[in-house]
Design a protein around this nucleic acid. Sequence first.
RNA 1: UGGGGCGUCGUCAAGCGGUAAGACACAGGAUUUUGGAUCCUGCAUUCGGAGGUUCGAAUCCUCCCGCCCCAGCCA
Length: 690
Amino acid sequence: MNGKNDKRPINFIETIIEEDRRKGKNDGRVHTRFPPEPNGYLHIGHAKSICLNFGLAEKYGGLCNLRFDDTNPTKESVEYIESIKHDVRWLGFDWEERLYYASDYFEKMVKYAEQLIREGKAYVDDSTADEIREYRGTLTQPGKESPWRNRSIEENLELFQRMKSGEYPDGSRVLRAKIDMGSSNLNMRDPVMYRILHAAHPRTGKKWCIYPMYDWAHGLEDSIEKITHSICTLEFEDHRPLYDWFLDQLRVFHPRQIEFARLNLTYTVMSKRKLLDLVQSGEVQGWDDPRMPTLSGLRRRGYTPSSIRQFADRIGVAKRDSTVDIALLEYCIREELNAQARRFMAVLRPLKVIITNYPEGRVEKLEAVNNPEDPSAGTRKIPFSREIYIERDDFMQDPPKKFYRLAPGREIRLRYAYFITCEKVIRNEAGEIEALHCTYDPATRGGDAPDNRRVKATLHWVSVPHARNAEVRLYDRLFDVEYPEADKSVSFKAHLNRHSLEVIDQAKLEPALFETGDERVQFERLGYFIRDPDSRPNRPVYNRIITLRDAWARIREKQPPPEERRVQTAGTVRGDSEERMNEITIDDFRKIDLRAGRVVKASLVEGADKLLSLQVDVGEETPRQIFAGIRSAFPEPEVLVGKMVIVAVNLAPRKMRFGVSHGMILAGTGEGRLSLATFSGDAEPGDSVT
RNA sequence: UGGGGCGUCGUCAAGCGGUAAGACACAGGAUUUUGGAUCCUGCAUUCGGAGGUUCGAAUCCUCCCGCCCCAGCCA
């Protein structure tokens, strides 16, 4: 796609292709295909395959077909066919006139099957599915030959003919290849070629009642299309001997199957089954929910095709199982949007600021740069007035050391406008901050101080009378652990990030946003956003594609402000600095809310030698997820299930590599061993412990 | 205890007998009217482990260990 990949080190598939070409195989021709089964929506894992197949064809001056592997009518539909075509096209690939369907070859496949029967290499088996399974043997024991294996060629031909013409019910007979029931490769133990399925096919309707199995069909499809390199995922490696066997027996054009590792991404799941589960259980709002790793989801989220291609290019292709850090995907879209997206100002959680020395009724139009990365994007005018909104997060009454935004008495810059100083905090009866009274320095118009004095922060803002309301949907990662599927004893859904969507319904936008045709924009200091199709003329809806990198957020996490300061207890995972430990006062300690909790689930955390993952019932709706560094004391965590423990419940949730820990278990060390603080008696989960 | 595949930085990933690329992440600094961007700097004396061959091994050999896949009339 981006033609620059010929300089970079090549992957093992390109090595194979180049070797084949050197030897003059297929006259140097390269012809690949992307062969989806139309039984679901495409996701970013498919994008890897699409980019690989189409990319290889392009790199070597070859072709890539789009072929639907529609051999199982019970699971497939035209809806999926259409969505897949749309997604491939959207990704930026063109199959030209080469759109094929396995079902187009059904007639030919039957002819080939009859050829095998005539050569004594296939037979009709009357066994039931259960019998076939039984006779197949196990991983360690060879299979047994079916009693129907040695029928005459004539009888097989006759029976197959009748299977095809619909004389038999579903499941009553199959056509099998006669290979080797003793093979150590299960796929070679007389694999099924055809099964009877009286089902209407999305394309061939009721024409057929027998349908070919993958192993039988796929190689033929590739062969018929004269595919040179048939690229698939690792789990088909075991099938390659069978792929080769069929094509060898038939003496037809023989493509080369090459397997690569499928894509896994942190903080998400990729299997069709699990994605379907999320959709059907209503955890997300559909296949195109912006949190889904589906291409339709990523599209709605605001990812560009080129950013996904860029991602596919960067992750590489190899044979080892791997899970790519989703931060790389995020990096790819930021990189592109940083260069291209125009900047605008929007305030998500407005806090009103009244500039007391600014004349009432006056409005100025201040000039703003549209994209500092791209001078050709030009400038625009932004209205400024006596009352403006700033972000609530940009003000703190009692700021911690590293917070250098607005605070009482402090001066900051309003981007492209003026320096203002906070003079007074206005609170309502409930004591909540309602507005800020500030004064501005007229000499700083545009944002530069003539005396060169400096401010530490520049804030974005929107003029109150000019602000336009909008709905903004803040999306975040779908799961709050890197590997939602790691712990097989817990449903992956237990790790859903409950904050993956936050809807802001009264965000304040600068008016220029209504004049731009740009789909994707940057809201300064917040992130990149895209207009959602749910938008109505007076009610725009924006989706957050991705936040900007946020250095402050990282500082804040490491050094929580005083009011949120957490207390450390035994059982901490890594323990924070001594400095912090020493900061705890008796008052701090009193603030810890200790509750009785019952362990309902306990398991090891893969990849951590000290941690246990616990689900603890503390009397709330759902048990809490708590990670505790007590594995050394409980190498078999199951023994903890049912035990009562003491939990600090009002600690700020702590993000850890494996997930978020909502609380801490009291434990102690002594004599070199660690033990849990527990108790007997009749406390119920949730009871206070003193 | 059958067969197939894979083990190189936190995560991807080059490397194919001549002495460990790159990217993301992370950390530090410069710069900055986005705590953004940009720019520097750092980040595997070591390639799952142990032996062996060799002047020389991540690369070759042997043994061991770990992970993934396979017992659909799914793909």
